[in-house]
Design a protein around this nucleic acid. Sequence first.
DNA 1: CCTACCGATCGGTAGG
DNA 2: CCTACCGATCGGTAGG
Lengths: 205, 205
Amino acid sequence: MPKTQPSRPTTTGEPQAVRADIIAAATKVFSELGYHGASMTDVASELGMRKPSLYHHVRRKEDLLFAIHEQMVDELIAETMVVFSSSKPPSEKLRDIVRGAMDFVGRHQDGVTVFLAEHRALSGERWSEIVLKRDFYERMVQGVINDGTRSGAFVDMPPKIAAKAVLAMANWGYTWFQTGGEMGADEIGDMFAEIALRGLEVRPG
Amino acid sequence: MPKTQPSRPTTTGEPQAVRADIIAAATKVFSELGYHGASMTDVASELGMRKPSLYHHVRRKEDLLFAIHEQMVDELIAETMVVFSSSKPPSEKLRDIVRGAMDFVGRHQDGVTVFLAEHRALSGERWSEIVLKRDFYERMVQGVINDGTRSGAFVDMPPKIAAKAVLAMANWGYTWFQTGGEMGADEIGDMFAEIALRGLEVRPG
DNA sequence: CCTACCGATCGGTAGG
DNA sequence: CCTACCGATCGGTAGG
């Protein structure tokens, strides 16, 4: 009795869904065990397949790590660009940025965990590529803060330090935020934005 | 009948300097390569010895990870207890806490990196032990914020969220602070404390 | 006898 | 998508 041929011996044109599933599985597994603590067998198991089958779709383990990083930073930049390009005043832009950052952490906690804590295994060139984008994001935030300072809305403080302080609140959320916990990411984002704005805004008094 | 006890590799009999050197080496190596990315050979090399010699002093790799965690959290608690137990008002205590936290990051950047990013490899029991101490530290900070809110000095905001926001600034510093950079940890700590206090204090106006 | 340390190798598992 | 493997390296330990 001859067995039926494999239904899908395609080598070109990987279906988008397959790649997305693989990245999603890798994101979950890497965030739980850490990049070096997770094996490709773990990722394959998450997908219901064996390691050699996974290697049919992925060349190297590091490629998955890079794909996760790229996905996260690209999406965060895209969302923040909308805010940055608006005609709102700096204080409202900063509020939207802090809210958006915390919301992003809530929506992509596993991906953010990998992005913020698992970059040491990336090659120098790939890490540089990610750093370039990450710095672009940070410069948008610094720009908003700088605009606020020059318009007299914010206190005079080095925009780099102020941006680090403000983004830290949301970034750090990846270590403790619980989906389905007492408070939602949106509520927490509102409070962080409140603290950040009170901390930076010049108020009459 | 009593026989002479063979000298086992006990922690108590170990010269303090040797153990301190080993923990220092592991801290450096783990922070650079990550716990799983670093081998015991790497740690041994850092000490100028071979791996089996290192194993004469250390039972398991995980013991080193735990020792680093314990050292960091114990020292941070000890330093913060002094501030917490003082008779200063909440706003000044919070300023000292933020300054102290950032200063701690500057003085122990490698150790803080391991403490904040490399805990997944700890066993459940040992991680629970660390979490207990970490939570004790956080409750001190929450207590200061709560005191400030009840005395009318701070705005009314959930102390847990406010503490997360304030501590995030310093914690996040482990990812970007550079010893010998433009600004010292003390200057950055002052600015973070300024943002945190402006963000939480109720000011007339 | 002790310590500190060595070269060699154990059972398993990593990425491929 | 599988079984069957590889060169290397992992954490940990043997005897001397």
